[in-house]
Design a protein around this nucleic acid. Structure first.
Lengths: 138, 138
DNA sequence: TAATAGATTAGAATAGTTCTAAAGTATTGA
DNA sequence: TCAATACTTTAGAACTATTCTAATCTATTA
């Protein structure tokens, strides 16, 4: 419970008051050693398991969406029904393991693209995302 | 109505009988000069407009899913609620226009990647997809 | 401490997709 | 050709993810 102030700042800067539920969400999202990938259900399940406390889905959706707007979380471009988020907001890429349905980060510096077609008139590039789908060597 | 046999073959090879509704879906999907991007609702709307005929959503979902399994259509990896499909099944990449919510193809030969990190043990690459998000120059 | 502003919540509402069961259509074998 | 069978289509139910709503609760402020 030592670095709660870090989370309080984060919440404040996103225009959110620090409440018990939001602090729990922060702890789950940003209290990990490594960045991670999750969906809303994961957070709900983790809150149950880690704190023995049920946080309503509405609260989780609200908090996650505010953090996304603020740039503290990134939504991942992946097909499928559920929305996935990434606590790694640095520009980077992904491996997607088709057999495990699992995502792994690829650091931006580990991918290089040396040619792209010219972009349409009046447009500029916002981001370039590479998704490397991998599967078991059968 | 001249190249219906082309569609009949396609349906047969996907294990589907050629019915009025499925032939309409085929015409909409594969009868275009250019490859295109669509979702289920688009096909439903197009059937209404082009043939003045309502095809049930269930039929469209079934047919599109069978074609996807068979490799005649590709599902596009994009966040968002609706699933998008691509009639271009060649390996290729996309521009995604954030302002217009519009997809454009980038031919595979127009993108080159000269370095990728090594892939995890026991895994091999299935595909490498590049998504270039673009936006208006404000 | 009272008043008020904001937060949380359960559950309703919505949207995309899949499932189901009944009715329709095509195919097959006699 | 006809009946039996197999496959299709369909409307609507069911399901799932997400958002909305309105009532209750909590925190802040004066």
């Amino acid at each position: 419970m030592e670095n709660l102030s870090k989370y309080k700042e984060k919440l404040a800067s996103a225009g959110l008051r620090a409440t018990k539920q939001r602090l729990m969400v922060c702890k789950l999202l940003f209290g990990q050693k490594q960045t991670f990938h999750f969906n809303i259900e994961d957070i709900s399940r983790l809150a149950n398991k880690s704190f023995n406390k049920k946080i309503s889905l509405a609260t989780i959706y609200n908090t996650v969406n505010e953090f996304k707007k603020k740039g503290y979380l990134k939504e991942i471009s992946l097909k499928g029904n559920k929305t996935f988020y990434d606590t790694n907001t640095k520009h980077h890429h992904h491996f997607y393991d088709e057999d495990m349905s699992q995502l792994m980060d690829i650091e931006d510096k580990n991918v290089s693209i040396n040619y792209l077609p010219k972009i349409p008139n009046g447009k500029k590039i916002r981001s370039v995302e590479v998704l490397v789908k991998i599967e078991d060597i059968k």
